[in-house]
């Protein structure tokens, strides 16, 4: 069945089973490999994209349910000033180890900052806890979010 969705500002039409998760449409049909498969169950956040700005697990979102929502992926997040700022903060802080989770981390971080421009540590915890980093770069993810927000990157949770 044909579905037309808007991805990173471009209308794309795909002919797939309506149950096919958005993640696999993005990766294997539209060749946008940035969103990652990690668990297939909404438990790791590696597949996080935005639907109308809301962070969404694309591995659990059937293509038939995307409708007219604007899909933004890691490949498109740099088109916004905020998205670009988050990506640059990730580069400045040198967050990555293996890097596999970082697309999802950046998408969750950008969604957090869009709603909460000056997040507290608690805000960061609740917005980011759904995104697993198996390499445990959490201290640097936290610092990069603060940097993108223009806050001090020092970890002030304990003296």
């Amino acid at each position: 069945m044909a579905f037309t969705i808007e991805v990173n500002g471009v209308e794309r039409t795909v002919d797939v089973d309506g149950e096919m998760p958005l993640l696999w449409v993005l990766r294997d049909v539209l060749d946008l490999k940035g969103s990652k498969y990690g668990c297939g169950a909404g438990l790791c956040g590696a597949c996080t994209v935005h639907l109308d700005g809301e962070p969404t697990r694309s591995c659990l979102t059937p293509i038939s349910r995307v409708g007219t929502a604007k899909v933004t992926t890691i490949e498109g997040i740099g088109e916004t000033l905020l998205g670009r700022r988050v990506q640059n903060a990730w580069l400045d802080v040198d967050v990555m180890q293996c890097g596999y989770c970082q697309a999802g981390q950046i998408m969750s971080a950008a969604a957090l900052l869009a709603k909460t421009p000056r997040p507290s540590d608690r805000n960061i915890d609740s917005a980011m806890t759904g995104n697993v980093c198996r390499c445990c770069t959490y201290p640097r993810i936290r610092a990069a979010i603060k940097k993108a927000a223009g806050l001090s990157t020092a970890d002030a949770r304990m003296p």
Partner: peptide
């Protein structure tokens, strides 16, 4: 910084799962 950092933050294909 890691040499692949810019590719990682841009979501470029780098990993085994991305091979086509």
């Amino acid at each position: 910084p890691g040499v692949d950092d810019p590719l990682v933050v841009a979501g470029k294909p780098l990993f085994g799962i991305d091979v086509a």
